[in-house]
Amino acid sequence: MKGRPVLGIISGVLFGVFVALLLQQLGVYPLTTASVIGLPVAGLVLGLILAAWAPLGKKS
């Protein structure tokens, strides 16, 4: 991986948790299985994709 996969996994999961909480508190979507489990899993996947792709920073 060109980026930072461990950072991507951890921050992706936490980002998913916080987005689920934010959507709940904004009255957009309640804390269902889809949001409480689905969003952190999607965050994890997004973190891995970003770490594998690593489109930012200097090219070596």
């Binding site: 991507g8 921050s11 992706g12 916080f18 965050g43 690593a54 930012l56 090219k59």
Partner: peptide, 20 residues
């Protein structure tokens, strides 16, 4: 705390996209 957590973890997630 939720808004702050979303912003901080979102920026950290972006940090994983930087090349090492």
């Amino acid at each position: 705390a939720t808004v702050a957590g979303t912003v901080v973890t979102g920026l950290t997630l972006l940090g994983s996209a930087f090349r090492r």
